[in-house]
Amino acid sequence: MADLEVTPAIATRKDETISRLQGLVSKGLGWARRYSLFTYPFATACCGMEYMSVAASRYDIARFGAEFTRFSPRQADLLMVTGTVNLKQAPILKRVYEQMCEPKWVVAFGVCASSGGFYDNYAVLQGIDRIIPVDVYIPGCPPRPEQVLDALLLLQKKISGQTHLLGDRQVERHLGARDLIEPAKLG
């Protein structure tokens, strides 16, 4: 991750070659990953209809390589949280996220998933970023398909800027809620 950016004080020719090779691999993997996003739609509410509209022929999400909807989180690498997530469903969402293999990305689809929307009450999770890290937020109630495609383009831009490694499946993400409290530090 970070050691790709930091140039060592004395770089041998071997180190240089390895880092250049790693850069090439990272670029290639990023290219492959951003154009083949397998989506897991965690559809709980009316935003799911809009997701169907994005996937249908008029706004064809297949043009961006994200058409292959997987209904198993183990086969997906893009989690689209589509709709209101209440507190009873929050552990399920967390479990679904943890079942996904690295690398994985999360899109909060619509205001309910992003911030709770106008359900500012005791039953609704006020934004899924309280339990899982979110890469792109889509506003709108529900968002237009254009907004979803804009978000997908943003996500592809973000993926291409990330560092991808062959051996280590960990992908550099922004500091999400999950990274703030590490179990090792607590114990």
Binding site: D135, V136, I138, P139, Q147, L154
Partner: peptide
Amino acid sequence: THTPPEYSRQSF
């Protein structure tokens, strides 16, 4: 125009 999607909540 629609509200553009963003990377962070602060941008909204």
